Every structure is written in C-alpha cells, then in structure tokens.
Amino acid sequence: MNKKELIYIVSVSIFSILLIFLPFKINIFFKIGIITLLYLIYFVKYLFIYLEDEEMENNFPLFLRDLSYYLKIGQPLPIALYNLLNNSYGKKLDNIIKYIVSQMKYGNTFYEALNDVSNKIKNKEISEVLLNINEVMKNGGDLSNLLDTLSDSIRNLSTIRKDRLSQLKITTYTYYGLFFGVLLSLAIIYFLVLNLESSSLFLTKSGYQQVISTYRFISFILLLINAIFTGLVIGKISKGKIQSGIYHSIILVFISLGFFFLL
C-alpha cells in the first residue's frame, strides 16, 4: 500500500465514522451504502490490476514466440524487440517491452535490462521465466529455441490449469446459490416480521418499528459481509487467486445494496 492509498483509506475511514455517529438526518442504510461504495472504489483499482496481470500472463507466451520468430529469421535482438513494439500484448507487457528497448537505447545490454525487469515485476511466474532467459544468455545458449520451449511450456501449463479450474465451476455456482439462498431467507424472515404488525406481541407501533429497523440493519450488515467473503472465496476456487474474487464480491455487494434499497 503506497502513501496515496493509505491517505485514501484513512480519509474514507474517518468520513465513515463521522457519517455513522454524527446526527446527520440520513437513513442508516443509505449511509452504509455510501461507505460501501467508497471502499469499493479502492478495491476496483485492484480488480483492474488483476485483469491487467491476467492479460499479461495470457499474452506472454505469444510474446516469447514472436521474439523467437524474429530471431530465427536473422534479426538482431534489438531490432527484433523494436519490431515487437508494433504488436499489442496488453498494457503491462507492452510497457515492459518499451522499457527494455529504451534501456538498450541508453547503452544497457539486454541481459541488464531483463534482469532489472525481472527484479521489478510482481508476477512470480513471468519473473522466473525472465531469469531463466538471462541464465541461458549468460551461458551462451540458443535463445530462440529456449523461447519456443518456454512458450510451449507456459501454454501447456495454462491449458492444464484452465481444465482443472473449469471442473470447479459447479462449486462456483454452488457458492452463488448459497448467497442467494441467504438473501432469500433474509427476505422471507423480513416479510414474516412485517406480517406481525397486527400481532399482540407488539404493544406499541414504535416497538414494532424498532424491531423492523434493528432486523434490517443487522441483516444488511451480515449480507454485505457474506457478499464480500463469498466473492473472494469464489475467486480463489475458480481462478486460484483470491484477487480475482474482487470482481465477484463487487457484483454480490451491488446485488445486496439493490436488494435492501428495494425493501
């Protein structure tokens, strides 16, 4: 978490405390909705980061194959890399290629530029591949054949991973079903409580309204917590990465907010 992110989280937390505890004439559910949306803005950023990383992982074997092709037809490494700038491999991978090319223009070797990138990049798998390429270059190995081998290996591993995760789709649907089961249960209980208005259990109308308000508040909080963690679990199961669950959490949170504002 960098300084800007820390300032944002602290500011939203302070704002949330003031909004909840100061006597503003705003519905409590609307307050919680505003707070939830402010925190979601922060998590959406990590969703985009995850999607960019996913795009980089998917396009990385294509990048290796294209670089190998240019080397095999006799192009020097700097020229081959420069030609790859005309292709599109996604925002992050394109930036890495541009960085390597710019470093080589300033006089650094491909080995130095690649070593620098492998130390900076946060993707462990790609970082290890880059280090392997550097090791082969250091020992004078055949770079083009290595690139082809690495590209095929990554593709095969990706196919195996996708096949394994696709078998877990039924589990993903089960978690969605459980979430909607909880939501439906809360709705049924809510309408049952509404029908108790004429019951002698409640001596006063204000007592009845207090029970309704308390139930709505507690169930609203529980459903939001359930939505967030259910989404994260779905991401871990379906993609193997908890970050991918942010997407599911956002969907379920918006469903939760919409459900309660319609009640």
Rank of each mutant, 00 (worst) to 15 (best):
Y39W: 13
I255D: 01
L224G: 03
L77C: 11
V10D: 04
Y111P: 00
Y50W: 10
L201F: 15
S249F: 03
L224W: 03
I250A: 04
P78M: 09
G258P: 01
L71T: 12
I126L: 11
I234M: 08
L150A: 07
Y208W: 03
L71V: 10
V101R: 05
L77V: 10
V233H: 00
G235Y: 01
Y89F: 09
S158P: 05
G74Y: 10
L252V: 04
E125F: 03
K239T: 10
S11V: 14
K122E: 13
L196E: 00
D116W: 05
M56A: 14
F202P: 02
V117S: 03
E125N: 07
N83Q: 07
N87D: 08
G258Q: 01
L147Y: 12
L203T: 14
G90P: 01
L157H: 06
K92E: 14
N83H: 10
D163C: 04
K4F: 15
Q75H: 14
G181V: 06
N139Q: 08
L157Y: 07
F179I: 10
F202C: 06
K91C: 12
T174E: 00
L143R: 03
L257N: 00
F43R: 01
Y39K: 05
I28Y: 11
F217N: 12
V12L: 10
L252M: 08
K92W: 13
G33H: 01
I100P: 00
S11A: 14
N134D: 08
K25Y: 12
K120R: 13
T214S: 15
L62M: 10
L203Y: 12
S219N: 09
E197F: 09
N58P: 01
A80N: 10
L81R: 03
L223S: 15
I121D: 00
L131R: 15
E125I: 08
L178A: 12
D148W: 08
L186A: 12
L114D: 00
L71F: 08
D142T: 02
Y99C: 01
A80G: 04
I9D: 13
V193H: 05
L263F: 15
L157G: 08
M104T: 04
N119L: 06
T174A: 09
K105E: 15
S153H: 07
N27A: 13
V193P: 08
N59L: 11
L143H: 00
G140I: 09
L77D: 11
R164D: 06
F217Y: 14
I188S: 04
Y82E: 15
L114I: 10
S199Q: 01
L47T: 02
L223A: 14
I49C: 06
K31P: 03
L37Y: 07
P61N: 03
F29T: 07
L194H: 04
N156L: 12
R155I: 14
V12M: 08
K162P: 02
